[in-house]
Every structure is written in structure tokens, then in C-alpha cells.
Design a protein around this nucleic acid. Structure first.
Lengths: 337, 337
DNA sequence: TTGTAAGCGTTATCAT
DNA sequence: ATGATAACGCTTACAA
């Protein structure tokens, strides 16, 4: 594979312009100390030859790639790609480029990705991946790669983190629910297999809130698939005619409310549904979904800003918490009118 | 920024193991010609010191990064992140990593990204970006970067492409529509600002089909936003009580059908809607959306496979066309029962 | 202001 | 089988 062959090098530019490579280097790095005349001459040569500096060689010489590694399980979820977009936007504004490391839900793969992150020489990393635990983060960090971890409370010399307040918000929702004078309806937590840390923490919060109140609750397992969840619940609603369901994401929540509707039940009068990870689709499906909301674009931006500060030893607050806001829409009974 | 400082180098490993760096290099590259004994000794030292080879230096020496550049307008659309996922999956299986170049809808930015792609030294590139025209593609290609272009028919020595059959499928839909004995209803093309090449081509196909049939048609402009389109159409349906709408993406189509429903019109009896870029959400909204469908994960995989072949001078068919399939659901009147 | 030369961490071609 | 040593394309003291 002779891809990168016949690239014009700085040396050829120097020769063609009749100067030394040091001078060319100075020109492309705009480090003064070059006569106007030679600068013009060199720039002209650069354009004529179509010279583009090799980022590789620059990185090797300066110990700086302009790469940020982003470690995610998959780019395939709306909320993750939203975050990716936020990261990307501010990364670009700061002259960084993103390198993607996807781990696809297996710890083994995640671990091999860590190795890859290290050899790849990123200037910093943003991790949003449930497969990676504190040890893994510290490992990549031990190669002095400044790191921002999303959705995991890890801090360190060169590690900052962003967390979410899902648990607290969910607890409040549970308490509010049972505080309603009329509401004796049992709450059901819809657990999806491999839902990751966020779901796990929500489930824990859900259960602990019920235990505190000494109320019965239920946990149902479903696949992380709209259509399978839909058919499961079509079945479910043949026997059960009501409930308040806490589902992981919009598509799962939508599956439940669609199944309920198709079973002739009324949402929210009979069946209430609430989505934990809300996206813009919460507003599009009918009835619109009551959902927790975190602006993942903002999360991405924040992560990148924090990382940038961290790289310049400038990050004062190593931990930042995003509030998960409950946006009440039409899939739940709304008290406060 | 002394990020990458104190990394263990191959030289230190060599010294600690009491061999030359050449030997260490042989070990990490598994290029035989090393005694079992020394190999073990070296491997032990590598682990003890936590040595990880520098991808940068390797790339510089071998003229091979293991990086694929992916140029997209933004990771924020479902169909793009689907494609990204497909690319990512096969890239990983082939030992490549993805570097993201996002262009955010401006030709100027897109152009500066090209420069960045070149300096970044990717082994290959996949471009899905309407801002980039043939000249731009050829420019990055002139630096001998094998390239696959998605949604643009460009071929060359080291350029392959993937195209879609939206235009043909859409024309067929239009013809079929007017072939219905009862159907005199006017079709409306919903144009979104900055919709890109795909939308543009669809619009052209839509218009040309109507001209061929000598039928009247309408084009409406909306913003690429669910909520604004929704309110626009709430307004619209105050006067107009029917229509068949061809919309760019699910969220726009959903806005129209929700507006229609909320205006008391029946979908599909009064108002029919059809989405050009269908995603899984076409199946979730109600009524379910008739939509064109292309499996973007497959597109991504295909693109990466083609690129891999191209890099090995092994790509026989430089052009591949994905069929846009019309999936009829409940937002249109379905003839064939 | 400009040029010389050492170094960045590898690979690869020679000898040995 | 192993070890020198020259690339790879650039930056950056240090000299001139």
C-alpha cells in the first residue's frame, strides 16, 4: 500500500524556494523572524507545489497530535450522536479533530480499545462508555492523557467528569407519584438488558425509593428493541389494564404507549409512561412522552470545554453535574395545571 | 502541554531487556527471526515497563496510519450516525480507526476540512457531504488518498462511489399515484432549506415526473425543524383540507401528519404523507409513516468494504447503487392489499 | 534573518 | 538471530 507516497515534503519546498527547511518551517508556523520577501517566496512555492505539512511528522516532533479520542459504545444512539456533535463543534473551534473508538458492548473490546487509544497518541480523551470502569480510565490516564469521563464519577489529577442527576430526579418522581392523593397505581420499571450504568442507577434509585416508602413495585425485562417491546406489551395488556411505566428510552416508551393504545387502553388515564432518556422524538410520538431531558449537545460541548481546560491545567472544577429535567407531556397525568 | 511526555520508548525497552531496538521492533511486529528466549525476555520487559508503541512513529516510518477519515456534515442525523456505525463496525474488524471531519453546512468549512484531511494522513476517506463537489474530492484524491463518495456519482483511479435510487423510486411513486383511477389529488413536495443534494435530486425527479404527466403540483418550503413545520402546517390545514405530501425526513413527515390529525383531518383518508429518508421512527409514530428506506448501516459497511478493497487495488466495481425501497405503511392509502 | 543539526519513536536494510 | 544505522517529515535550539 503505497498510499502516502510522492507527497511533497518540506525539504522539496525548501529546495525549490532556495531556502533551508528551517525557514519553510518558520513560514508554515507563522513564527515571525522571516523577511517579508522570503515569506512570500516560500508561500508561493508551497502553493505551487501543493505542499501540505505532514501532521504525523509534526506530531512526532512536537509531542502534540491535535486529536481528541472519543470512546463510546456505538454512534448509533440518538443521545450519543447528539453528544458527539457537541464535542465535535467545540473541538473544531479549538482546532482539534475527533478520533472515534467504539467498543460495542463488550468489556474485552473496550479494553483493547484502551490500548489503541494509547498507541494512537491522542491529546485528550472523552469517555462515555459503561464498559470502562475506574481502573480502565486510570490506565489510559497513566499515559498522561487528560480525560473527561461522562456518566461516571471519577476524578484524578488529569481526570474530570460529568455526571447526571437522573437518580435524584427519578426518586422525586416516585415520591411525587405516591404523594398524589388518588394514586395507588403500582409503578413498573422497565429494565432493558445491557442498558448500562445509567439504567442500572435509575433502577436502584427506583427500588430504593419504593423501599423507603414501603410500596410494592414491579420490574419487567424487555429487549432494547421497539418492535419486540411492542409485541411484548401487546401481550401484556391483554391481562393488565393499567400501570405507570418507567422506560429507558423513547423508543421503548413509545412501544409501550402504542401497545396500550392499540389494546384499547387510554394513555395517560389507564396507562402512564415515562421515558428516562428523552430525545426530540418524545415530542413527536403521540401522545407526547413525558421524559427526562438532558441536552446531550450541551453535555458534549461541556465535556470538550472541560477537556480543553484540563489540557491547559486550567480546569478548576473537575466535576460537573447536569440536571436531568422532567419534562411533563401527555403520557402521564399532569397534576400541576 | 507536555502530555505525551515520559512515555516508555522502544529504546528504553531495548536497554532494559539488554537487546537492541531492532529486536524489540521485531518482537512487537511478530516478524519471526527472534529466539523464543529473547522474545519472552522482551515481552516480559514490555509488560513490566508498560510499553506501548507510538502509532505516530510507526505511521511515519511505514507510511501507514490506520486511520480512515470520515467527512460528514454533522453526526447529528439519525441516518448519518447509522452509516457511521456501519463504517465503524467493519473498520474495526479491519483494524482501522475513524477520524471524524465535520463540515457543518458551509462550503468554506468543508474546504478547510479537506486540507485537514490531507495533513492528517488518513489511509483512506469516506465522504458523505453535499458541500463537497467533484473538484474537492479530486483534490483530496490527488494526494493519493483512496476515497469512497456516498451520494454522489464520482469515479476515478482511486475513487469509488455509492449512490441511491431515490429519484427513480420517487418517479415511480408519482406515476403510480396518478395511475390510481380515483386519485386526482394534487401532490405537494415539501422542500426544506439546505436539504442537500439528495433532496434536490428528489425534487427534480418529482417535478419532472409531473411535467411528463402534465399534472399540476406544488412545492412548499419549510424549515428543517419538527416544531416549526408542525405549526406551519397547523396553519396550513386551516384552509387546505387534503393533500399528499412528500417530505424530506421522518420528523418533517411526522410534523405534517400530527398537524393534520390535530386539525381534525384523517390520515391517510384526507391527508397522505410520505417520508423520503425513513428511519426506525417511521414505524413508531402514528399513523406509521410510509417511507423510502435505505439501510444506512449497510451503506456504511459497504462503503468501508469498498474502501478497503480500493486501498488494496482490489475494487472491481467502482460504483454501487443502493435501492431506495418504498415501505408502505399507514400514512398513505395502500392500493395493493 | 537564516541555516545547521539534533531529535521525535519507529521501521527496515544492511552487516555481522 | 541480532545489532548498527539510515530513513520517515517535521520542529527547534544553537550557530552564523
Amino acid at each position: 500500500m503505497e498510499n502516502l507516497k510522492d507527497r511533497v515534503t518540506i525539504y522539496q519546498v525548501a529546495q525549490a524556494a532556495g531556502v533551508s527547511l528551517a525557514t519553510v518551517s518558520r513560514v508554515i508556523n507563522k513564527q515571525g523572524n522571516v523577511t517579508e520577501a522570503t515569506r512570500i517566496k516560500v508561500e508561493e512555492t508551497i502553493n505551487r507545489l501543493g505542499y501540505k505539512p505532514s501532521g504525523l511528522a509534526q506530531a512526532l516532533a512536537t509531542n502534540k497530535t491535535t486529536n481528541i479520542g472519543v470512546i463510546i459504545p456505538s454512534a448509533n444512539y440518538v443521545y450519543i450522536s447528539n453528544m458527539l456533535n457537541g464535542i465535535s463543534e467545540v473541538a473544531k473551534s479549538k482546532g482539534f479533530v475527533l478520533t472515534l473508538f467504539t467498543t460495542s458492548h463488550s468489556h474485552e473490546e473496550a479494553y483493547s480499545m484502551i490500548e489503541k487509544v494509547i498507541t494512537t497518541h491522542v491529546d485528550g480523551a472523552i469517555i462515555f462508555d459503561d464498559e470502562l470502569d475506574e481502573g480502565d480510565v486510570m490506565k489510559i490516564n497513566s499515559y498522561s492523557v487528560p480525560t473527561i469521563v461522562v456518566n461516571n464519577k471519577i476524578q484524578g489529577d488529569k481526570v474530570g467528569c460529568i455526571t447526571f442527576s437522573y437518580s435524584e430526579t427519578l426518586k422525586r418522581v416516585v415520591f411525587d407519584h405516591y404523594a398524589r392523593p388518588d394514586s395507588l397505581r403500582e409503578m413498573v420499571f422497565v429494565h432493558v438488558h445491557d442498558g448500562g450504568r445509567l439504567l442500572y442507577k435509575c433502577e436502584k434509585a427506583f427500588i430504593s425509593a419504593h423501599q423507603t416508602l414501603n410500596k410494592p413495585y414491579k420490574v419487567i425485562n424487555v429487549d432494547d428493541s421497539y418492535s419486540r417491546t411492542y409485541s411484548d406489551f401487546v401481550e401484556y395488556f391483554k391481562n393488565t389494564k393499567e400501570g405507570i411505566f418507567v422506560a429507558y428510552r423513547d423508543s421503548i416508551a413509545a412501544a409501550i404507549e402504542n401497545a396500550a393504545t392499540d389494546a384499547g387502553l387510554r394513555v395517560p388515564e389507564d396507562v402512564e409512561v415515562l421515558s428516562l432518556v428523552g430525545t426530540k422524538y418524545a415530542n413527536i410520538v403521540r401522545p407526547t412522552l413525558t421524559a427526562f431531558h438532558v441536552d446531550m449537545i450541551e453535555v458534549g460541548k461541556r465535556a470538550m470545554y472541560m477537556l480543553s481546560d484540563l489540557m491547559q491545567h486550567n480546569l478548576l472544577e473537575k466535576s460537573y453535574k447536569f440536571e436531568a429535567q422532567l419534562i411533563r407531556r401527555n403520557s402521564t397525568i399532569n397534576d400541576e395545571k
